[in-house]
Design a protein around this nucleic acid. Structure first.
Lengths: 124, 124
DNA sequence: CTGTTACTTAAGTGAATGGTTGAGCGTTCC
DNA sequence: GGAACGCTCAACCATTCACTTAAGTAACAG
C-alpha cells in the first residue's frame, strides 16, 4: 500500500493557497475552462494553469481536454476523503475530555489528569 | 473576516506535511510535550519544535508552558473550521448535477454500472 | 552551586514553490 | 490557407520550506 499520506500531502498542499481555494470555490459552482478560472485573477494564464495542475495532481480537481479547451471539475470524492481525515481526528479528540481537564486545571484542581490510552493502532 | 483566508492558508499548510499530521494524530489521542511528540521521528527536536510552532500558528494546536515542558493539545474548534470549509464546497458541488450531465454526454449514464472515473489517473 | 533536562533561538543549506516571460502546439473561425 | 484562440512547455528568478547544527535559556535534581 503506497502511502495515502502522499495523496493527503498533495491535497492539503493544494488547499493551502488562496488562489487555488478560489478556483475550487469557483468550480464548486460548476465546471470551467482554464481561462475562465484565470479571469478573476491578475496572475498570468500560465500561473493559473499551474495551479490547476496542482489541484489535479492532488485529485481534488478532474480535468478533461475538449477541443482546444480544458474543462475542470471538482472531485467531491477527493474532497470527502480529506474531510473524513479531519473528521476522524476531531471526533477522536472530542471524545476525550482532556479539554474538561484543562478547564478543571485552569480552575485549579489536581496536577496531571492524562488518561493514557495507548491504543495506538490508529493508522488510517 | 478578512483574515479567514490567512487562517485557512496556515491551517492547510500545516496539514500538508506528513510529520505534522502525525503530530496531530498523536495529539488526537491526548496531550503531549514537544519531546514526546519528537520521539517517533528521526528528525531533531528543533525540527519537531518548528513543526509544533507551525501547528500552533495555524490554530490547530494550542500549547501551554508548564515548568520546563510545553504541553500541546489539539484545538478541535480549529479542525472543525477547516472541515466546515471543505464541507461547504463539497455539498455545493454535490448539489449540482453537472456531473450527471457529463456522464450523459459521455454516454456512460446507463448500461455499465462501472465507476465513471477514467480520468482519475490511478488514485489509490 | 553544578549538571541535566527540555525547550528555544539563530544561522545556514539544498530543494521545492509560485511567479514571470516567451515560444510552441493543436483547434476553431474566417 | 492563415489568423486568432486556448492551452502547454521551458527556462529562469525570488521566496519559502524543512531540516540541520550549535549555542542559549529556564526549570529542576543533587
Amino acid at each position: 500500500m503506497v502511502e495515502r499520506s502522499e495523496q493527503l500531502d498533495r491535497a492539503f498542499h493544494a488547499l493551502a493557497d488562496a488562489t487555488r481555494r478560489g478556483i475550487l470555490d469557483r468550480l464548486s459552482r460548476g465546471p470551467a475552462s482554464v481561462s475562465e478560472l484565470a479571469k478573476p485573477y491578475s496572475a498570468s494564464l500560465a500561473a493559473i494553469h499551474q495551479h490547476v495542475q496542482v489541484l489535479e495532481a492532488s485529485g481534488l480537481v478532474v480535468t478533461e481536454k475538449r477541443g482546444r479547451t480544458r474543462e475542470c471539475r471538482i472531485s467531491s470524492e477527493a474532497v470527502l476523503r480529506v474531510e473524513s481525515w479531519l473528521n476522524e481526528r476531531r471526533q477522536l479528540w472530542e471524545s476525550r475530555f482532556d479539554r474538561l481537564g484543562e478547564l478543571i486545571e485552569s480552575g485549579e484542581f489536581m496536577g496531571e489528569a492524562g488518561p493514557p490510552d495507548p491504543t495506538a493502532g490508529g493508522d488510517h
